[in-house]
């Protein structure tokens, strides 16, 4: 055996070392530590109480906490509705950008703008649009009839719809780009063959485009689902979880418990729950997409 292999291993480890160090210290250790914290009763700023080990007490508290249950339901609802809409709109955007027409580059730029805008800015923007007095929504709907203006964010249903709306606006183009990548690998020949076989535009879309697009759609779905699970900025800026916890999502609830109320243990339990939910989803990700890169290993 040559000595090259160990030398290469050594170099590889050094190349990886900083990345691994960062990941271990600021990602893996914190997750484990969060779990550890979630098994203790910790109130920040009240050292006298100590930090007693309480087993799964925080998780039991959470199961019995109606606000936590509400946050869970809101999150699930948000994930389902927003990802469904984003996938449909994303598909539309992808189909448009995939066509050949002059100025296509500029349409793509336009579609990317919402994605590039900081979420906080987008949130403030939508908050302003849904403003009861100065908002664009009221202006468009009611014009001069000021007395009919609606304080959108003050109604639970409308507030929830507003954050969904903002999220869909912000991220549909991202879903669209993932779907576009899938569209681009469908060979033109297949469409030609279908045309010769007599399929109409509509039939070609349903019988060829959609089935062949399935992997890309799945990918977009997974990404959007995982991301929607982590929604925070929108809620923080637009509604602060209100009114009446109607927009209280898990990451915001956990954030409040951890940093506003100092309930370190309880907040950690919520964060571990969110983590596990996303972890299950990310298993799909690693298996479905990660393997694509790993497949091409030399034998």
């Amino acid at each position: 055996m040559t000595s090259r292999a160990p030398l290469e291993h050594q170099a590889a480890w050094w190349m990886l070392a900083p990345a691994l160090a960062f990941t271990l210290v600021f990602a893996l250790y914190p997750v484990v530590d969060s779990f550890f914290l979630s098994l203790h009763r910790i109130f920040l700023g009240v050292p006298a109480l100590g930090q007693p080990f309480v087993g799964f007490e925080n998780y039991q508290t959470m199961a019995g906490d109606p606000v936590a249950r509400q946050a869970f339901l809101v999150t699930i609802g948000f994930v389902l509705v927003s990802t469904a809409l984003e996938l449909v709109l994303g598909l539309g955007i992808a189909l448009v950008i995939h066509e050949h027409f002059s100025g296509r580059g500029w349409v793509r730029v336009a579609a990317l703008i919402p994605w590039s805008i900081p979420t906080v800015v987008a949130s403030q923007m939508w908050r302003f649009i849904f403003n009861d007095q100065y908002g664009l929504a009221n202006l468009l709907l009611f014009g001069e009839r000021v007395e009919e203006y609606i304080p959108w964010l003050a109604y639970p249903g409308f507030a929830f719809a507003a954050i969904v709306f903002a999220d869909v606006w912000k991220t549909s183009s991202f879903a669209g780009l993932l779907i576009l990548a899938g569209l681009q690998v469908i060979p033109e020949e297949v469409y030609d063959a279908a045309r010769i076989d007599g399929a109409t535009t509509w039939q070609r879309f349903w019988k060829i485009t959609l089935p062949l697009l399935k992997p890309a759609l799945l990918l977009a779905l997974l990404f959007r689902t995982m991301d929607a699970f982590r929604v925070f900025d929108l809620v923080f800026v637009m509604t602060q979880g209100g009114p009446g916890d109607s927009t209280l999502v898990l990451q915001f609830y956990g954030y409040k418990a951890l940093f506003a109320e100092g309930r370190m243990g309880y907040g950690a339990a919520i964060s571990v729950t969110v983590f596990l939910a996303i972890f299950v989803l990310s298993l799909f990700y690693i298996r479905g997409i990660g393997s694509r890169l790993l497949e091409k290993e030399p034998a």
Binding site: T23, L28, A268, I278
Partner: peptide, 23 residues
């Protein structure tokens, strides 16, 4: 290693927020 590194991008910020703050 690659799998572990990539999975970090899936972490919800909240899951690491407390300990990162403490560090």
């Amino acid at each position: 290693i690659l799998g572990a590194l990539l999975s970090i991008s899936m972490f919800p910020q909240l899951a690491i927020a407390g300990p990162v703050w403490q560090i």
